[in-house]
Structures are given as C-alpha cells and as structure tokens.
Amino acid sequence: MRVIGIETSCDETGIAIYCDEQGLMAHQLYSQVKLHADYGGVVPELASRDHVRKIIPLIKAALVEAGCTKDDIDGIAYTTGPGLVGALMVGATVGRSLAYAWDIPALGINHMEGHMLAPMLEEHTPDFPFLAMLVSGGHTQIVRVGGIGQYELLGESVDDAAGEAFDKTAKLLGLDYPGGPRLSALAEKGVAGRYRFPRPMTDRPGLDFSFSGLKTFAANTIAKEKKLAEEAGADGVDEQTRADIAFAFQDAVVDTISIKLRRAIKATGIKRLVVAGGVSANKYLRIKLAEMMDKQNGEVFYPRIEFCTDNGAMIAYAGLQRLRHGGDDSLEIIVRPRWPLDQMDAI
C-alpha cells in the first residue's frame, strides 16, 4: 500500500510517499522560514497563501522522486489538526480533492500523532507500550501510548509550551526568527553556574508543565543585566552574558522535562521513551535524556533530525496505519485547529 502524506499545519509544506513494503519512497519539504523572518514569527495568512503556491509542485516532485504515477497511489493522508486553520484547509482541500479525483480513500491525521509515530520511520523502533514526550510548537505533553490511537494524556503545559518559551526568550535576547534553534546555538557558548533559573511546577506532584514564569524570569534577568550594563557605560549586554542566560534558560527547561519524565516512568513502570517534535532536535535535551534513561535502564527513541520538525513523512506513515485498517473520511472537508490526542480512535 502506498500513501501520500500532506502536512500543512503551520509554516512547512511537507509531502511524502510511504509504502508498507518499501518504506519511505519520497520526501519533499518546503520551509517558510525566510518568508516569516521579517515579521519575527509566523503570519497565518501568508502561511496559507504560500502553501497554495507550493503544494501541487511538491506533490508532483514527490511522485517523480518515488517513480510513481497517480495510479500507483492507494490513499492520501493529510493533516487535519491541530494547527492554523487556513493552512490546514489548504492541505485538507487538496488531499480530499485528489482522492476524489483518483477514486482512492483519504483520511485526516492528527499532527501530534504524526510526530509521536515519527520514530517508526527509523530502522530501530520502539515496541508498545511506550511513553511519548511531545515537544512541538504550542504543545508540551507526556502521553502513555498503548498502540495506534491508544493514547492517555499524563501531563501537558498549562500555559506556554517549551517551544513557545524558547522562541519568546530568544526574542528577549535579541535573536532572530526562528528563535528556538538560535537560542540553543547561543547556549552552547554559555557557562554553567552563573545563573540559576527555577524549575517550574517541580515542587508539587503531577506531570503538568508551566513555562510562562520561566520566560518572565528570563525577561527580568535580561532587564537587570541591561541596567547594570548601562550603569557601567556599556553598549548593551555583552555576548557572554547573553550566552550564559541562554544556557541557564535551556538548562532549566531540559531539567524540568527530565524531572517530569522520571515521575512518569516511576508511575507507569514504562522505560521506553519516544521524544518527538521540533524541540526534540535540541542537542542538550538529547544528551540529558540519554543520561537519564541510562540511569533508568531504559531506552530513548527519536526521529532523525529532519523529521523532528513538521514533515509529510510522519503524516504518510500515520495515514498508512489507519487507512489499511479501513479508515476513510467522508467527502466533507473538516479541519480541527484544536484536536486533543486522547480523542483519537484506536485501531
């Protein structure tokens, strides 16, 4: 079975073709980073328009890459949500329309389910059940995964997600969009111990997260250093100070995630961990979680770096799993800007 995956939830247009026998046959991705850089963040209307321009050429390119024609495709999977409603409508409309024209089934896929199953694209994959740490855009969630569609939400962010806090703190440090990766790069030059940031919500039971206060702490720290620099006659905060603040912030986020995951492992007894989403590409996070899981005698799984951010491959894989079990949407085109994982159907 060969499935086209279409991902247009935010600022990447991702198209892929996945086969249950041959694996990933094609992977096309267009990023809108340059388009949104001048605005310091994603502009939803511009994102939607760019998806319209790129989606059909990328589908054609994926078919060429895979050596396929439309007659070789058995189904289409497209991201239904969560995401930006206009961007989602582009992928859903094109995916559903192509499926109707080609007389094949089509199915809307949960974006977060796609991220969670992205490690299944690798050679070494986790067995069910496993714990999933999802750190993607506006989501920070710990999920117990018993199988496809068998998802129990154990904890999530009650305000800013980790990725949002990274981006907002990066802006406070004067870093360009996309802020998260730039903050991580700056943190590599930082020195440990100069600043100590709080580990929010770790002094109380539970697995929920809160990173809004951490962002505020960073803002206050930066403001204090700016004042000291002005009093000393300096032209702003020096590069090393900015790097040390970035390190302390990143260390606090990663340590908070580690603390919560240790609690989840203790509560569930599950020592297989999947980490997915854009923040899962963070080098420091990977190092610290590898150390943690080694102490737990467990194992951690990641998608390759190119599949940490939004992509069509994860949607194609998730779609194939559901389509071959009889999944098929009606002709009505529906998108879900908010779509909790625990509302998914099991297969």
Results as ranks from 00 to 15, higher is better:
223 A>D: 13
225 E>D: 08
74 D>C: 10
61 A>H: 03
201 M>A: 12
292 M>E: 11
288 K>Y: 00
284 Y>H: 14
146 G>N: 14
187 A>M: 01
126 P>W: 11
240 Q>P: 01
225 E>R: 11
123 E>A: 15
183 L>A: 05
180 G>M: 07
240 Q>N: 15
298 G>I: 10
242 R>F: 03
184 S>A: 15
172 L>Y: 08
135 V>L: 14
248 A>N: 04
212 S>E: 08
32 Q>Y: 02
58 L>H: 04
324 R>N: 12
60 K>G: 06
335 V>G: 11
111 H>V: 10
213 G>M: 10
153 L>Y: 06
190 G>A: 01
346 A>D: 14
17 I>M: 06
122 E>M: 15
68 C>E: 03
235 D>H: 12
161 A>D: 07
115 H>V: 04
268 T>W: 01
324 R>D: 08
305 I>N: 03
136 S>N: 07
281 A>Y: 03
43 V>L: 13
227 K>C: 01
206 G>F: 11
315 I>N: 07
82 P>T: 11
54 K>Q: 15
91 G>S: 03
173 L>T: 08
165 A>D: 05
231 E>G: 00
30 Y>S: 13
40 G>R: 09
303 P>Q: 07
288 K>P: 09
28 Q>N: 00
326 G>D: 09
35 L>T: 15
74 D>K: 12
113 E>L: 14
289 L>R: 08
301 F>W: 13
93 T>Q: 10
270 I>T: 13
119 P>D: 10
3 V>K: 11
323 L>W: 14
328 D>V: 11
266 K>V: 15
194 R>H: 14
45 E>P: 06
116 M>K: 00
321 Q>M: 15
211 F>M: 13
54 K>C: 02
132 A>W: 06
213 G>L: 09
273 L>D: 14
37 A>K: 15
264 A>Q: 00
25 M>I: 00
130 F>T: 03
16 A>G: 10
226 K>Q: 09
50 D>W: 05
54 K>T: 04
317 Y>A: 01
192 A>C: 05
74 D>Q: 10
205 P>A: 02
104 I>P: 11
